[in-house]
Design a protein around this nucleic acid. Structure first.
Lengths: 257, 257
DNA sequence: CGGCTGTTTGAATAGACTCAAAAACTGTGG
DNA sequence: CCACAGTTTTTGAGTCTATTCAAACAGCCG
């Protein structure tokens, strides 16, 4: 699909930046849920980077709340190809929808060493009885995930490789910075390999590499060895063709305004 | 990615067919919600085929319950490309997540003439207070949508054109038959153009056409003018590489077993 | 210093796209 | 029942983006 140039939106990242000022964590309202959950959880669990938190196809009747670290949801095809469905940052609830007889339809792997709280799925009913607002909150969380997923769908389905990669980097950048607002804005730790980026964007690792080289050459982004450095935010947002709407969804779940 | 042959799963469709025997409508548990909603809705609305139910970017503070007809969720890029995010069958709730200041981040268009019930978003709070179980039900609905979306992501991100098209046809076939179990199983009405299929699978209409011709030539599926005829279900399921897990998610929302 | 994981490079290939035009089908109204 | 306008499908040729396969290179850790 031949596109003339990359797009035309300006200053989107600054929209984002101003949003960031309001603080708040990724999946912000999930912390309300987490608070209520505290009494119902049966314990914590540590998982090493690279290990599965939820194994694919495994019977699973608990929900995990990601307390610390990064993880990602993925599905596998029988020929071994992997599709990364979503990246989870602290505050995310994992395994909410392992319906279909309780067997996980997708896996969750720890990207860094992580800590999760364990909540039996059975606890949901009493939990929601005692905290009437929690059902709607959970619905909101799931809806927000759905929205992110729709965004990825659009990206993978209709955008060029360059756009997809830019889009993903920007999303991760914004979401992660919503968590640690204090950190340096130009450079951040991003615990991914190029292969991960490929699996998330529906591209080959090799091709992701070539795209990243283009970005580096054009002094837009430098991504090397788990370190992301955004040198020209506007240009990147331009390429990624972000809607300010979506930036808001990245940052927080419910919009008070 | 060169794949040898198409896959190897057998009889998946029959799994599905046996599931169908249990009856039930698409988004089955949404009917529980719909029941409770009845008292809160402010009216019904008819929308003609091809018209928007929710216009993209429009401020929108109501939820629609799709009572009759087909619709689809879509997003648009500024160059005019469209990505279809999901097909909605009767029983679906539309517009649950128009957060971000209440502006729709995606549009919903009627595929056939449809009827929707209108529920003000404000009504959710009191509704969930009076029906404590409804929050979790909504969360379940949203989770199920998320699951479908993940499935599409995997499809678009990692599968070949043939696989994607087969996958979509099979999904629509199964979901639609879960609604009208009585109907003839080999042939059904599918109110789509090849362009729609393209927009849903991340392909060009032209290329979808060539894929469909292959299927026709191989006597697997015939799709012409809104009529879908599955001539070799096993072969199709084989190509689509369906997991039985997912078939269950297509059919109903909560699995009692 | 290996060994491992991750990145980079090159050349050849292929799957899907573009553009454009023709054909087939549908529904409508005379 | 036919003609017409508007969709939708079909076809062909040429192009291009992203892939494959393979090998070399670089950084990291014990």
């Amino acid at each position: 699909m031949a596109r003339s140039g990359y797009g035309s939106k300006k200053k989107v990242l600054h929209h984002g930046a101003s949003q960031l000022a309001s603080g708040g964590l990724d999946d912000a309202s999930s912390f309300e849920v987490l608070g209520a959950i505290a009494n119902y959880k049966t314990g914590d669990k540590e998982v090493r980077a690279g290990q599965d938190i939820v194994r694919l196809g495994e019977r699973c009747d608990v929900i995990y709340a990601l307390v610390a670290g990064w993880a990602f949801l993925y599905s596998l095809l029988q020929d071994g190809q992997r599709q990364i469905l979503q990246f989870a940052l602290p505050g995310a609830l994992l395994g909410l929808d392992l319906l279909g007889g309780g067997h996980a339809t997708y896996g969750v792997e720890a990207l860094t060493d992580v800590t999760v709280s364990i909540l039996p799925q059975k606890a949901l009913e009493p939990l929601s009885r005692n905290h009437p607002q929690i059902g709607l909150l959970l619905a909101g969380l799931a809806s927000r995930d759905r929205l992110l997923s729709y965004d990825h769908l659009t990206s993978i389905g209709r955008r060029s490789a360059h756009e997809r990669v830019a889009h993903l980097l920007l999303e991760l950048f914004v979401r992660s910075h919503a968590q640690w607002p204090g950190h340096l804005i130009e450079e951040m730790h991003l615990p991914l390999t190029q292969e991960h980026i490929g699996d998330a964007t529906g591209l080959t690792g090799v091709h992701v590499n070539r795209v990243l080289q283009d970005f580096r050459r054009e002094k837009i982004v430098e991504f090397r060895y788990r370190r992301l450095r955004i040198r020209d935010p506007d240009r990147l947002a331009d390429i990624a063709n972000i809607e300010p709407q979506m930036v808001r969804a990245w940052i927080r779940h419910r919009q008070p305004d």
